[in-house]
């Protein structure tokens, strides 16, 4: 048995106080490039108060289909992003992975790859899922590389799904099966 499921080599997954998380989210939302890498919705700015209400609601409801964590560096205990398994379909053993590192000073240092390793181990050995899916935008090669490194396989692309900077871009979808993950682990 692994002694701490929530701990990787560089980061650990945490549950944060709603106020701490809300403060971080509304700070990261100021960076429109981050927002556009993260989501297809129009980049927007939210108040800390509003975000805190959402986070509190999510935490109070104890939704059985959502597992959401903060990401903290092990070296400095700094909150650098969030990661979640959402839309868990228990009957099919499947879930959707989302991750965002809002603090761009830590991009390209392997934190995301490490956080994904930790959450895949959680998905396959604690939740006992069979498969994890994700979406990523064509204009985010850094994320695509990171998912490939974690073992995700390209499964297709929604052609010209996004309209940004006056150009249309594909949305790529990827997935990893438990038997594939077992071979990488």
């Amino acid at each position: 048995m692994n002694s701490d499921l929530f701990c990787g080599e560089l980061v650990r997954l945490t549950v944060e106080d709603p106020r701490v998380l809300a403060e971080a989210f509304s700070r990261w939302d100021r960076d429109s490039e981050y927002m556009r890498l993260l989501d297809s919705f129009p980049a927007l700015q939210w108040s800390t108060k509003k975000v805190q209400e959402w986070v509190e609601k999510d935490q109070d409801q104890l939704r059985p289909d959502l597992f959401m964590f903060g990401i903290r560096t092990r070296s400095e205990d700094r909150l650098i992003g969030g990661i979640s398994l959402d839309g868990v379909k228990w009957a099919h053993g499947e879930s959707f992975l989302g991750i965002g590192l809002g603090d761009r000073t830590c991009w390209g240092n392997g934190y995301g790859t490490d956080a994904i390793r930790v959450i895949l181990r959680y998905a396959f050995t604690e939740l006992n899922l069979v498969r994890v899916s994700l979406d990523v935008f064509e204009y985010n090669p850094r994320a695509i590389r990171c998912y490939e490194k974690a073992g995700f396989v390209h499964e297709g692309r929604l052609r010209k799904f996004l309209d940004r900077e006056g150009e249309r871009w594909d949305m790529i979808f990827m997935g990893i099966l438990r038997e594939e993950w077992e071979k990488t682990a």
Partner: peptide, 26 residues
């Protein structure tokens, strides 16, 4: 509609796993 990909073994039914097929039209 055109096939754009398949999410491998996305569903479990009748004791086996099945792909989810994604399609789109522009």
């Amino acid at each position: 509609f055109r096939m754009e990909g398949r999410q491998r073994k996305l569903y479990e039914r009748e004791g086996r796993r099945w792909d989810g097929i994604v399609m789109g039209i522009l």
